[in-house]
Write a protein that binds this DNA or RNA. Sequence first.
DNA 1: CGTCTGTTGAT
DNA 2: TCAACAGAC
Length: 438
Amino acid sequence: MTPPAIMWFRRDLRLSDHPALLAAADSGEVLPLFVLDDRLLGPAGEPRKHFLYDCLRALDHDLGGRLHIAHGDPVKVVPEIARKLGAGSVHVSADTGPYGRERDEQVRTALGDIDFVRTGSPYAVTPGRVRKQDGEPYRVFTPFRRAWLDHGWRKPAKSGVDSARWTTLKGGRKIPAGKSELPAGERAALQVWADFRDGALADYDAGRDRPDRNGTSYLSAYLRWGCVHPRTLLADLGPGNETFRSELAWREFYADVLWHQPRTARENYDRKFDKFEHDSGRTAQRRFEAWCEGRTGYPVVDAGMRQLLAENWMHNRVRMIVASFLVKDLHVPWWWGARHFMRNLIDGDLASNQHNWQWVAGCGTDAAPYFRIFNPITQGEKFDPNGDYVRKYVPELRGVQGKAVHKLDKLPGEYPAPIVDHADERRVSLERYDAIRT
DNA sequence: CGTCTGTTGAT
DNA sequence: TCAACAGAC
């Protein structure tokens, strides 16, 4: 029997929002499909891929082993399969991640006579919907957030999935201190959410900035792969959870920005930064490599970069610190760092990642003022006051007691000397920003 | 989602 | 000597 429809799981690997789909899949009326493209493959054995594979395995389990996994460029593969099966329609979430408006149009064109049906999106408000009075997209976060809240969203779908069918993740580690492993799938996502909601959320305002603690939600990877829908989270939030709601709003804002301007995944949102002077050549390359490998000689920076390599995840506060360091102390183009993040982060999302980098670099929407340059030492002392985070990821510094891990002149010889002087490079950055100011 | 500098007033 | 704060970048 030929499936009359294809349900293409692009990055929404959950079923609770699609109870009808489950029934349709059971009866064979729908072919659930996931397409692995080259970007999702990468070198074998990469933990990020394990997470995705585990998510797919969980989804496949929930679908009773009916998930079809194809490989290649979705723009080619999806229409091929649709034709081969004689499918009448392809259903997929709209406008997400790298597959923004442009990609969707390519797919629609390639499908020809076959219907291309959007089934929603992994956002509370589908990108492109929140507009200013004049119909233009918002360029500044705060008014966007206001309008986004006013726009509202429907309640999350009542789970139509028999919870007994959900993959039980036996042996899947709980989100522990500095989790190095995330259990995959929808059920795990909901468990992580419940843990956070009933725990760290109460102290989120201050707690989220402490990399030495478990104050963040650890939901980014689940949101990235669509294991949980943001509406499910939003529905649980109360009036006291403004900060966490804002974090979700940032995710929606950047998805909206990228949807309107796909070029900003690679280029400066603010074009006057196209003239900004970066370092290049061998020195920049060497410094970039030192940054990637976590041997810049600045403890918090190195701890963060090593956490990224070890766990394919980095605490958000530390992401800001290392990003600021790369751009403003090493004078490397933001997209070098953004690419390194995308290649290594389990939660790497094109919209959030690229635009947060642009925010740090000062060239993005609503960007940080150019003069806002993090002092990596002060940041370390402020947010890792006892040095626990640094010691955890930088073995050379394990013998250094307490907050002394942040004192550059008191570090042991086996730890790298600072590759640059922060005060000097700060001045260089300010001069270069000055040069492009209009 | 910052830092630096200078000022003030308390210790 | 230093916390707290304002203003500039």
